[in-house]
Design a protein around this nucleic acid. Structure first.
Lengths: 202, 202
DNA sequence: CGTCTATTTGAATGTACTCAAAAGCGGTGG
DNA sequence: CCACCGCTTTTGAGTACATTCAAATAGACG
């Protein structure tokens, strides 16, 4: 049963017993999105926070000049959506698009408030989740400030080899803050360097 | 009495009565830092979260190549420090430096845990504080991705005229992700454009 | 297959950086 | 009160990293 993945993820933060498992489970919503569907859109209040069971997504926003900027790529076992919109229940500014057929487990804002009361340990669990998200986001930004495009890609590929396989390169380029063409050139450069290091095989 | 500023700030998030005011007040620590002092340093666990009563600070980190990157500038009425380190009580990676003689009200991690129990509404208050910080940080990053250096400076100057006055330009440049020299050139460009728009006065 | 989108490649360009030097500014001491 | 010192800001020249635009190639999907 797929809900197990979300609850197991929460177990990384707080212990969850059998009874609590049952209560949480009954307040989850399973949702399916086909490739190209939007899980969140600009201007909407995000009613749900979403955990990816299967598939992949990109979270991006569109600036005043119409350009897209991807701020999160997500595959299985990642939380996703417009988190600031969800936690504040204000209109969001982000699009979340399924990059392939994707299953998510979602918790509605109202159900989460209920769960805070019925399973008090979740209060702590979600605070830790937010803190974690904030800290890793900041860490990622700091890292990107100090690295050039090639180093950003190498770091990404090392940290998330599964994503590098699964997600189209133009989206990875946008996530890493570079043009698709430039990422292509970087990959060529890396490969040709590897060939030289090994030596021409003749 | 200076502690009022911190508590008034919390009142933006949750109501705080007289008795609660007294309890919170008794768990605050007033600290003074002289120009150039460090409020936090890389490698240290941040015992305190800090609210600036008077003065100014910069929060930055130093990358592998020795370059500084400022991620926050703060003046009166701002929370500051290495927040991820404080909330996780893990070693931090950020320096927080007083740019002039600065007074802060601080809450230690232990006192904050006490306060959560004695003034339960703070549980909600600080969750909102973190959410807020996360949301604004993300918003700032998004904005910077879509603007060029000149637009970033103009946006900054419009949003925080007080900081633009109070804080040395080289720090503003670093905060905005550009070299000090380039910010100088940008300012010259802006001024000369303003002259042209007004027309030469002859 | 044929169409549509993604990726690759190349050339020209641009935005911002680095380095070096000059000018400005503020504080301190004689 | 002025002269000097150190630090910040300004200015200029040369450069680099990454972009844009255009075209060719490759891949995916119906």
């Amino acid at each position: 049963m797929e809900k197990a993945l979300l609850i197991n993820n929460l177990r990384n933060f707080v212990p969850i017993g059998d009874e609590e498992y049952r209560v949480i489970s009954s307040h989850l919503t399973e949702r399916h999105f086909s490739k190209g569907d939007f899980i969140t859109k600009e201007g909407e209040v995000n009613r749900y926070t979403n955990f990816i069971e299967k598939g992949s997504v990109r979270v991006y926003y569109i600036d005043y000049s119409g350009q897209e900027h991807i701020i999160q790529l997500g595959i299985s076992d990642w939380w996703t959506g417009d988190f600031p919109s969800f936690i504040t229940q204000q209109k969001g500014i982000l699009y979340t698009e399924a990059l392939e057929d994707t299953d998510v487990s979602s918790i509605s804002y109202d159900n989460l408030q209920l769960l805070y009361r019925e399973v008090p340990v979740l209060e702590r669990g979600f605070r830790l989740l937010i803190q974690n998200a904030y800290a890793s986001f900041q860490y990622r930004i700091l890292q990107n400030l100090s690295l050039d495009a090639e180093q950003r890609y190498i770091t990404f590929r090392t940290a998330y080899p599964a994503m590098d396989q699964q997600i189209p390169q133009k989206h990875i380029a946008s996530y890493l803050g570079m043009s698709a063409e430039f990422l292509s050139k970087i990959k060529k450069r890396i490969v040709s360097r590897q060939r030289n290091r090994t030596g021409p095989s003749k």
